[in-house]
Computed example of a mutant assay.
Amino acid sequence: MSRERAIAVIDSGVGGLTVAREVMRQLPEERIVYLGDNARCPYGSKSPDEIRTYSFQMIDFVMKTPLKALVIACNTVTAVALEDVREYLPLPVIGVIEPGARAAVKATRSGHIGVIGTETTIRTRAYERALLRVRPDLTVSGLACPAFVPLVENHMADTEEARRVVRETLLPLAGEELDTLILGCTHYPLLAPVIQEVMGDRVTLISSAEETARELAELLGPQPAAVPSGTRVAAPEHLFVTSGDPDRFRSIAEEWLGCRVQAEQHSLLEKTYQP
């Protein structure tokens, strides 16, 4: 694979930055094109047809850049449109649900796993199916948390309001004897400290980001040979695009990625994909 081709990471907003950060860590020489559809976020309460339409608008945009792979860093899009996208694109496409499920199966001791996600992700039972394919004897408890994404998108993850909302939302899981909880939306790791505080130390939180990046690395195969020791190599110039407010996006991205981010704003055009 040529270094000139980029890895595209798409999400409904800033949540996919959790995946992008892990890709940057595991594949530091790869260039990333990140697109967040913040203007129409959240996706979790939208119809499957809307989700597919918005997803392919994002895909048509990032395909203007020569790509080597696409990461759908959105659980809702993965649950609704992953197979459609794989049929549409002539390049490797990775979602976040299967990697997250595998990581949870490795982590659980009791065999009782919780899943929190958007309304659509929970309604499709995509995580439950993925988990049971790996280990049919599991007990899976799902809970939709529609209030979480707006907290993250509005840069409110570290506020008392976020703590209140998380406590109230996760109350139905309080009596469950689960030991592993999948953060089934890529926005949710930005709320991880609060979620951990509410669920307690006995519960292991699972984000799919690390496993997704690992699968991407394996899919791309052997990377280009290392340059000779002492040779200075320019860091890849990542591109970050949002359909929403670029200043808000930049603030969250810089905080989460720990580096300077240049964010461009783009209004997504009508999709060319026809199902």
Rank of each mutant, 00 (worst) to 15 (best):
S141P: 01
D179S: 08
V71I: 15
G36L: 08
E168H: 04
R232T: 12
V261Q: 05
I206N: 11
S251P: 00
R250I: 10
L143R: 12
P99E: 02
E177I: 00
P92D: 05
A144M: 05
V152G: 04
R167I: 00
D137K: 10
T231W: 07
P66N: 01
L216P: 08
I51W: 07
R250G: 11
L67Q: 03
A126F: 00
L170Y: 00
A157Y: 02
A213N: 04
L220H: 08
V152E: 06
R125A: 14
G244R: 12
G95Q: 10
G13W: 10
V105N: 02
G95S: 02
P222K: 15
N154V: 02
R202A: 15
W256R: 14
T76S: 02
K106A: 15
G184I: 06
S47V: 04
L170K: 11
A73E: 04
Y43H: 07
E153R: 05
D201E: 15
R202K: 15
A209T: 09
E98F: 01
R167Q: 06
L219S: 10
R232V: 15
L190S: 05
E50M: 13
R52K: 08
A234H: 12
R163L: 03
E30D: 14
A147N: 03
Q196P: 03
T231C: 01
S12M: 09
R167T: 12
A225F: 06
G44L: 07
T120C: 07
A20K: 03
L183N: 11
T18M: 04
A73G: 12
V233P: 00
V85C: 05
V152Q: 02
E210Q: 14
L138M: 14
V77T: 14
V165S: 01
T124V: 09
V203Y: 11
S208E: 10
E264N: 04
V19H: 13
A103W: 06
L143Q: 07
L89H: 08
R40S: 07
A209F: 12
V152R: 02
M58Q: 11
